[in-house]
Write a protein that binds this DNA or RNA. Structure first.
Lengths: 233, 233
DNA sequence: ACAAAAGTGTTAGGCCTACACCCATGA
DNA sequence: TCATGGGTGTAGGCCTAACACTTTTGT
């Protein structure tokens, strides 16, 4: 695709893709990955990584490509979910641009955020700067979707480190759903799913009482990911 | 928007919208509204009503407009839900065309299907003809979504006549979910939601035993529609 | 009279919720 | 020694699922 001159009988909107990338850690809670815009419009504002669709790619591959270009970050195709099309007529001052938004859950550590690429940076969802275009609306929809999704899909594999403790998992759920759970009930419910396996090494570390380390049973995880399940809260 | 000559620096895909309209009646079960294509590509095939997006409309208003043009059918904006973007590179032989698909639930009777407009016609989901483009894929996604949605949104208002009987409501749920329920349990569960009101007139009609007629409590219906609820099956 | 459709209630089991105490460690 | 964080089990209530018989009417 080169810059040039492309003529059509009817006008066409531009098509872009955007990626809402969620990450999580104990310190900042749930965060999203933003890039600072270096050019107008909205120069200096933060925005989701994204850009114009090429003619030989699906919106999904376009989204993955833009994400990589702007954040040096590789998300596996399976972990990218379509959020929807945003098409308000005046959402982009450059003209008629519709965007297809995607979202994904990733391990925060796997992005060297902060300085490389185009200034990609994690922002906790409680502390989001001014966003470009209609990205605030997109974020709202993404958060809503994430909350819904958590009831049907095992999450955590993408957001948590390899092994984790029950309180960590609970904190993640509480951060996403913005609620509080009883420790015992949460643990019981999670263990009953058969998704977690106790890691043999009970590490002797700095904690007051050494928490049990768990990891996801990958087979069970995949099975539940595809079949879905139902988690009541 | 007139036919003419529109030139851009970079190539742009065409953007269309498509509507998957679900209807229901006792005789045919769950059905979708299709139009017969009068021109190539896929002339003679059936397809979802839809067409090219205009520059001054959102994908949602575009979908509603196309639906009305092709089927003389008005769906209220609130009842149209976005299904997603379908963007396979070769999904349309005319060139690069991406489509934003929507779906809605309607009362079948309100479409004078069969002969007007561009040959709009209802097809039971068990008996769908050859579809144009990737519309078979779109239908699969729509059916999956509908099955999911039914757990969180009260449906029926859109699909059923003003008043209906419990067995009718159950048959609708069974048609969508493709399962069978125990009559007593189904009725108990439904009544417990507080969504249904008994219609005073117990009509004396042809049935063996006259079934109780219900209608939706509109206030409760709207409340549940916005808040959502959870229905276990 | 018989088949078909609709109405109705109970019981057992599982899941959810709420709740309190103990232990180990670091300060 | 005290505050903190983590581990553990139980009892009550609610919801779910399974289940059978009666009534009416059309054929």
């Amino acid at each position: 695709m080169e810059k040039g001159s492309y003529t059509y009988e009817y006008p066409r909107p531009s098509v872009t893709t955007d990626c809402v990338i969620f990450g999580y850690d104990v310190k900042d809670g749930l965060s999203v990955l933003l890039v600072e815009r270096g050019i107008d419009p909205f120069k200096g504002c933060w925005a989701f990584p994204g850009g114009f669709l090429k003619m030989d790619e699906t919106t999904e591959t376009g989204a993955l490509r833009e994400l990589k270009e702007e954040t040096e970050f590789n998300v596996e195709k399976d972990f990218l979910e379509q959020l929807g099309c945003f098409s308000d007529v005046n959402r982009d001052p450059r003209g008629r641009v519709i965007t297809i938004a995607y979202y994904a859950l990733v391990q925060k550590g796997s992005v060297k955020g902060g300085d490389d690429a185009r200034n990609a940076q994690w922002y906790p969802i409680g502390d989001i700067p001014q966003l470009a275009f209609d990205h605030e609306k997109i974020l709202r929809v993404a958060l809503k979707r994430l909350k819904e999704q958590i009831h049907f899909q095992p999450i955590g594999f993408e957001l948590l480190p390899e092994t984790f403790t029950m309180p960590q998992l609970q904190a993640l759920y509480e951060a996403i759903l913005e609620v509080h759970f009883d420790r015992r009930n949460f643990a019981n419910k999670m263990l009953k799913l058969g998704l977690l396996e106790e890691t043999c090494e009970r590490p002797k570390n700095t904690a007051r009482v050494i928490p049990v380390q768990y990891h996801f049973n990958p087979d069970k995880y995949k099975e539940m990911k595809s079949k879905g399940f139902r988690l009541e809260f």
